[in-house]
Design a protein around this nucleic acid. Sequence first.
DNA 1: CATGGGATTGACT
DNA 2: GTCAATCCCATGC
Length: 206
Amino acid sequence: MSADRHLRALELPVVEAARMLVGCTIAHGECSGVIVETEAYHDSEPACHAFIGLTPRTKTLFEAPGIAYVYRSYGIHALLNVVVEPEGVGAAVLIRALEPLTGLDTMRARRGLDRPTDLCSGPGKLTQALGIWLDLNETPLLGGPIRLGPPPPDRPEPAAVVGPRIGITRAVDLPWRFCVAGNRNVSRPWPPGLMAAALGQGQGTG
DNA sequence: CATGGGATTGACT
DNA sequence: GTCAATCCCATGC
């Protein structure tokens, strides 16, 4: 049932893929985590890098699904995306936050922090915690150094909350961000109305 | 060839 | 809440 959730996600349109990837796992080396926040980007809308077309920078986005698009943000951070949709379409799911699962000590050392909710609670934070950098751009997510996997078997199906994307200036109205309801590892709290919906899922925020 | 902007974070007020 | 750090690449002259 959920054992192939990550595989099914790679076959879907990007917005559905973003929702489907919430709850799946990402691993690099000994470190891994459950995806708790994603955003969809598609070449049909101006917030996506691929909106401008095929360039050296956006080339990865137009390749076949199932590879990583890793790019530098604000000159400092590396951000990890899952490329989806058929070759020739520029679309990817930004991985915005993880709930740390394994390799916590390594994550703490890389991040220089202790609190688990600070380790992977942002797109730049999780790449630092997992040791993912720009050299892993275009590498496969199945059978490559970065491993995309199904949800941990002991977990209930996550309740995803939808909202607008973060940190962009164009196409800000598209509700293409997905979070696990009530999870404290998400990068930023969502609006009050959505928070109420999240609390309704029975996962108290403490 | 020079310039401007960005899918962010952490430190400081 | 505000702000600097830092660099690839698209754009324009």
